[in-house]
Amino acid sequence: MHDAPSPAELISAVKSFIDDTAAPQLTGHAAFYARVASNVLSTLLREIEQRPAAEAEELAGLKALLGTQAGDSIQSLNRTLCEQLRTGSMSISTPGLLEHLKTTTIAQLSIDQPQYSGLKAARAPRS
């Protein structure tokens, strides 16, 4: 199958249309929604670029934490992790847990809201 234009190129083209052509002609609620829509497309561009590596790292982290074999999906491993936290088999003092959750959440937020103040704080070395 063809990939020219690529998904990222198509999304960028729509984003340019919203930012440069549509949004300047809108007012009130419609202008607000246009800005939200443009931000959503920026999220999608980051998702395309960053998710594959972020998921590979999350999967490796989950397997290290849970000591499971190959073949399990991220979804099923996260369900297992949630269950262990809920039942108390794992807790805040479990070695490696906070580090794994922080790495995963930093990667998620780098896609979702890279400007969020809490992200910068999380990346700063602990004082």
Binding site: V40, T43, L98, L101, K102, T105, I106, Q108, L109, I111, D112, Q113, Y116, G118, L119, A121, A122
Partner: peptide, 11 residues
């Protein structure tokens, strides 16, 4: 896609 903001705050 703003739920992760509260996750980093929680961590």
């Amino acid at each position: 896609r703003r739920v992760s903001e509260t996750e980093i705050d929680l961590l």
